[in-house]
Amino acid sequence: MKDALLEVRDLRTVFETRAGRVCAVDGVSVAVRRGECLGIVGESGSGKSVTFASVMGLVKAPGRIESGTIVFDGRDLRGLSPRQMRAVRGRDMAMTMQDALTALNPALSVGEQIAEVLEAHDETLPTRGAARRAAIRKASVEMLGLVGIPSAETRLRQYPHEFSGGMRQRIMIAIALACRPKLLIADEPTTALDVTIQAQVLELISDIRKEFGMSVALITHDLGVVAEHCDRVMVMYAGQVVEEGLTAEVIGAPKHPYTQGLLASIPRPALRGEPIHPIEGQVPDLIDLEPQCRFYSRCSQRRERCLAPIEMRAIGPAHNARCILAGEEET
């Protein structure tokens, strides 16, 4: 894809567990363009977080990337040494975690944690001495100001537990953005937050993205968040991408039964009194999967042809789905 900042192709990440081989990410291809906000939607176990942990080179044992290519800004990340990978991480792409309380180090002040990133990656800083410290301090104050934390000077000296949940998420964003990365991977940035705070944080990410011309990969389980903040969306299910396209198309006219089911599952005041239509059953065990459509057991429109492996199919200029029915007349 032209204009892609990050291009992942056929990524497979597996975990060897005592119970067997878990294929958490199974042949995922994803591209994030420059300056766009891509939403990645899926339920727990869909592989959405593992996909991006793989991109960041942060898959922990017993997990490992089995195959696939990850090209970021023209470089093949899988060919990099751990040392080169560390240089990319934090400087060119950064990730924020869902739980800011555990992701921040409780023993270091917020200022020290921002400084750590700058120390490691910022080559424009003066090399040593007071000038370097002053430059780091100035940059840290600027970052806290940017994410909307008032009286940044004094708050730099405070520790994570002295901040509220929303503020901690902002601090994590500040740390992630300290080196002006080209790609921000935001893993469920608002799941732990209250709605009024959630709105603030999402708007902050949107504003900064526009200001820096940064790309954002927003991992979430909330289709509402995607609808309001993302240009494109990718829906994942059981380790595979099942549908992707422009947000308005995917949410307005979903083609994959899973996407349709997800949308129908969201309780809304508008549906009062009408029965809700949940997707029956549960996500399949990712151990020893059959080659058939992953959604087969829960699909209301399944048929015999679904027992064969299903490929992604183009059903519009920028709309793909992994379903034999997609694009055909709806039944």
């Binding site: 975990f15 567990t17 119970a19 067997g20 878990v22 958490a24 727990s44 176990g45 977080s49 593992v50 997990g63 065990d285 990712l286 151990i287």
Partner: peptide
């Protein structure tokens, strides 16, 4: 996220 199988 639970990756491991939950039904031993």
């Amino acid at each position: 996220m639970s990756l491991a199988a939950e039904t031993p």
